[in-house]
Design a binder for these strands. Structure first.
Lengths: 185, 185
DNA sequence: GCAATCATGTAAGGCGTTACATGATTGT
DNA sequence: ACAATCATGTAACGCCTTACATGATTGC
């Protein structure tokens, strides 16, 4: 069983979901495509960690709802005592930043302004999540506590990323002003 | 050519390196093992993006130094105009946090205190990097500028992660105090 | 009309990890 | 003694992405 499987088990322990819905729920914390999740869920059902039923829908396509079994809950509880792998990040922007000195300042502006928008969207996404969480439910032992602290982390990180982007854009603006004033002299 | 290859090309454009050194240099921004990097570099040499020479060392094992070619520089410059993929993060702690309500508060303390140490190390690592960068070199067009803004981001992110961890640990402490006082009443 | 969302699935191939293999030097 | 660091490489396997396949509904 890999980490993603345990993550899906954890989401299903909170409430039953379709594969499609699980894919959307896990996105903000672990980017996985439907083509990875569907076979994984099928495998977990074969191992009796999950059970499923088809639900007919009139306006939308039929969906397969997965429910966690007692064996699944057992495996999930065991997972909580296992060592946690360090976080892995792969951000092309960091690698691109290494080679910034090769291109002109216009490209640099485009790159960080584009990224700024992404961070702003991210910030607003987590602000929306936090607004939907009733604050009196946010204490340890409650399922809402996890949503609360995860959304708070998402918001804090997005705010920092946004701050960094603005700072970089300021440095670029300062440089552009200095070089144009040199031209005028 | 994948993103990691361009990242390695970008590092080699700044200065020549061995495969081992490249593995260490790219770690903070893109986690890749030597077993992935060595065959990649060999492939890039076959495509004439790099050239290599063996350097003998008396105290340490011999090393193969890679140098970027003019063709490699050309490919790297072209890359700077291509769209940038969004950042991908896989953090087991986030998935573990979903299922926090299943385990007792002692486990929760262990988990976030362990992570706190990692964030503190990360913060100190980037502080060290920043201290080694001469501030007068930190403007656009200079190679040091990239190091400066990347290390600044690393530091800002680590500080935020640390702040978040302390905040979570505080919430856990508050909860523990409330529940023990209930027991006393 | 065209794109997006909802919904599930498979197949091929590329990306990445773990393990194997070797071997000297340095620090605990 | 034992672990860590330096240094390069290969092989097997698992993770993950891209593309293929289908099809209804909703909004622009």
């Amino acid at each position: 069983m890999n980490t993603l499987s345990y993550g899906l088990l954890g989401l299903l322990a909170r409430r039953e979901s379709s594969g499609y819905e699980l894919m959307l729920r896990i996105q903000p914390f672990w980017q996985a495509k439907h083509s990875q999740i569907y076979p994984l869920l099928a495998g977990m059902e074969e191992k009796h960690l999950l059970s499923s039923r088809w639900v007919q829908q009139s306006d939308k396509p039929d969906k397969k709802i997965y429910v966690i079994t007692e064996l699944g809950m057992q495996k999930l509880r065991e997972w909580m005592y296992m060592p946690i792998a360090p976080s892995v990040t792969k951000d092309e922007l960091s690698l691109r930043t290494f080679s910034l000195w090769l291109s002109d300042i216009g490209i640099a502006f485009d790159i960080y302004e584009e990224r700024r928008k992404i961070y702003l969207d991210k910030k607003q996404y987590f602000e929306g999540i936090l607004q939907g969480i009733p604050k009196d439910m946010c204490h340890f032992g409650n399922k809402e506590f996890s949503n609360y602290i995860l959304a708070s982390k998402g918001l804090m990180m997005a705010e920092t990323e946004l701050k960094w982007c603005d700072w970089v854009l300021d440095l670029l603006k300062q440089h552009r002003m200095q070089t144009t004033s040199v031209h005028k002299q």
